[in-house]
Design a protein around this nucleic acid. Structure first.
Length: 594
RNA sequence: GCGCCUGUAGCUCAGUGGAUAGAGCAGCGGACUUCUAAUCCGCGGGUCGGGGGUUCGAAUCCUCCCAGGCGCACCA
């Protein structure tokens, strides 16, 4: 069971690459400036390139060399050194930069914007949908275990995190040139089935089950826990039923199949709505016939020992609590199935990484899993990576499926779409396909709300926030996209042709800032992929939309001057491309009208 | 008790060693005969949980506290 409820884990320690941010045009400038500074500072050009940074505001230039590190050996203040270097470069310019100027302890370089704008826009124009994609992954396989809801429980808001984060990571890593395999590790095995069977045997009615399967199963699940409070025998009975299920007893298996099928049908409706397709629905039960091998292996390798009738792995040496692989009644555990799953995945897909997009409360579980794989001698153990996220909670406290304190994802999605529809009805009553736009905006809002914050943090569930379409939201980004589409529609029948002469007309502050932001896109994808944090990309898209909105208010596109008009059309075409590509990687649609 | 995560503006959060710590929301004030006002502009608002340390430089790294959250053998 991946996502019953809850939070926490690691932050930056699971990065598998985090090299220099690729920012082609900017990197080119850094290289050139480093070559200029190398003889003046007597430092290696590559070292200088690593020190160059972006100033906090545009008046301070575009790249800065901090002079602090030279202060010691030159026996001068950083400000004096900056001034010296500034004098040495007075009147000089390079291909990428047009001037250098000392400002306090920094030497600031100002970009040659005509060239920079031309290069960035041309690159986006030529790459189109591929802008930002790379082949860095070289087709390596990354298995992503995500969503993984629990059969017999409704798809709650708590499951949305794994679902949308996992899906976005699939898309982002694919853009980085990896081949991703999305696996839905359904919670379709375990003692909860014993509980469900007990509940159904005692209180279940077929009619009600078929009428509204998931909610009825949920009702039984909650009722079981209520009654179990008074009657401890129920838990024991449930364990016994689960054992019968593991032993393959027909009555138990038939219940299991029924519950599983009914739940899955419900989940698939939600996945369809969200546009998510898994490569495999390999739930926990998929590994049932591999468990004996796992048990045999840990015993043969002397990794596990018998203790009080159970089979455990002592991990004390590694600062971890013991891990149990088989209970005294002979039944296996979650961890046993995860070990089998990891081995199966490596055997089958030969992955370079296996990601587990699972709540942070399961950190210990994955630490134990990786350590046991290591003890078993699998060199790829360290490639199994838990990508944790915080829990969604109410103001009053945590959600609890078994106490019935939860919110249905379906309801959240429905309300978001309904509200989007109302707003469209009010703001754009003539829109042709309101339903489609409402879906894009409503679903985008829910997704973005989850993706835009750092995943390790808890999220407080608040209807007002979920149903907010202003400020830093998906709608803000989508609206910028729709506006651009609108201008392009009015600007002529065909899309603007590339023209270096026309683009030379760009140079206003709003235009420069916008182009600089667009240039950062490939680096943001890399950073998102490297730290498995879609929030980096999500936040970046807010920046793009904001820069576009500022431009939009200051710079009319459809002006009379044909060259400026074409230049701005090319600029917004590039903005549209970046927004569309970026939202696409978050699984969010970019409406042409809204 | 032990371990892990979090703590930044009234609220929700950006900010993974560099220049005056930034957004959104909420509040107040402006901008639609002009490419969609789901937008933009302005104003106010901070002991970056606290103390020590490392560093030319710390919200960021180390350490000790405090607060909240989550875990820690027969659940998943």
């Amino acid at each position: 069971m991946r996502c019953h409820f809850t939070p926490f884990g690691l932050k930056y320690d699971q990065i598998f690459y985090y090299g220099e941010t690729r920012w082609p045009q900017m990197d080119h400038c850094k290289a050139e400036i480093s070559r200029v500074l190398a003889p003046l500072t007597k430092m290696e050009a590559s070292r200088i390139a690593g020190l160059l940074e972006e100033p906090p505001s545009p008046e301070l230039g575009d790249l800065a060399f901090p002079c602090f590190i030279l202060a010691g050996q030159w026996k001068k203040s950083p400000a004096e050194i900056a001034a010296d270097l500034g004098r040495a470069l007075a009147g000089r310019r390079g291909e990428c930069w047009e001037r250098a100027e000392a400002r306090g302890p920094y030497l600031n370089f100002y970009l040659n914007y005509p060239l920079f704008i031309r290069d960035v826009l041309k690159r986006i124009y030529e790459a189109g949908p591929d802008y930002g994609r790379s082949d860095r992954g070289q087709g390596g396989v990354i298995v992503i275990d995500y969503s993984s809801p629990n059969i017999c429980k409704p798809f709650g808001i708590g499951h949305i995190r794994s679902t949308v984060i996992g899906h976005a990571l699939c898309l982002i890593l694919e853009a980085m040139g990896y081949r991703t395999i999305g696996i839905n590790h359904l919670g379709d095995w375990g003692t909860q089935f014993g509980k469900m069977i007990v509940a159904y045997e005692r209180w279940g009615e077929d009619e009600k089950l078929y009428q509204d399967p998931v909610n009825y199963l949920y009702y039984l699940y909650v009722r079981f826990h209520q009654e179990a409070e008074e009657n401890e025998a129920l838990e024991e009975e449930a364990r016994a039923w689960f054992k019968r299920l593991e032993d393959g007893e027909e009555a138990a298996v038939n219940y299991w199949k029924l519950f599983r099928r009914l739940s899955l049908e419900n989940y698939e409706q939600i996945y369809d709505l969200l546009g998510i397709k898994f490569d495999y629905y390999h739930g926990e039960s998929h590994y049932n016939d591999m468990l004996d091998d796992v048990i045999r292996m840990v015993q043969e390798k002397g990794v596990a020992v018998e203790s009080e009738g159970a089979l455990i792995v002592d991990l004390e040496k590694y600062g971890l609590p013991p891990a149990m692989l088989r209970k005294k009644d002979g039944a296996t555990l979650y961890l046993t199935r995860d070990l089998a799953a990891a081995m199966y995945r490596h055997r089958t897909f030969n992955f370079v990484k296996a990601l587990y997009v699972v709540g942070a409360e399961q950190k210990l579980h994955f630490q134990q899993m990786v350590k046991i794989l290591e003890l078993l001698g699998f060199p790829w153990a360290q490639d199994c990576i838990h990508v944790p996220f915080g829990l969604i909670r109410f103001k009053e406290g945590r959600m609890s499926t078994r106490e019935g304190k939860m919110i249905l994802l379906e309801e959240v999605l429905r309300r978001a779409i309904n509200l989007a529809r109302e707003i469209i009805e009010e703001k754009n009553p003539d829109l042709a396909d309101k339903e489609s736009a409402a879906k894009m905006v409503g679903l985008g809002a829910v997704r973005f709300g989850d993706l835009s914050n750092d995943r390790v943090k808890d999220i407080e569930f608040d209807w007002d926030k979920v149903l907010d379409f202003s400020g830093e939201t998906a709608a803000y980004i989508q609206y910028a996209h729709a506006r651009i589409c609108s201008i392009l529609r009015r600007g002529g029948s065909a899309l603007p042709e590339w023209s270096e002469e026309a683009v030379a007309a760009l140079g206003r502050e709003e235009e420069k800032a916008l182009v600089k932001t667009l240039a950062a896109y490939p680096g943001k994808i890399e950073a998102s992929a490297a730290s498995y944090r879609p929030s980096i990309l999500a936040r970046y898209l807010i920046d793009v939309a904001r820069d576009f909105n500022r431009f939009y208010h200051e710079c009319p596109v459809l002006v009379d001057n044909p060259q400026l008009r074409q230049a701005r059309l090319l600029l917004i075409l590039a903005v549209r491309q970046v927004i569309k590509n970026g939202l696409g990687l978050l699984g969010i649609a970019a409406p042409e009208e809204m």
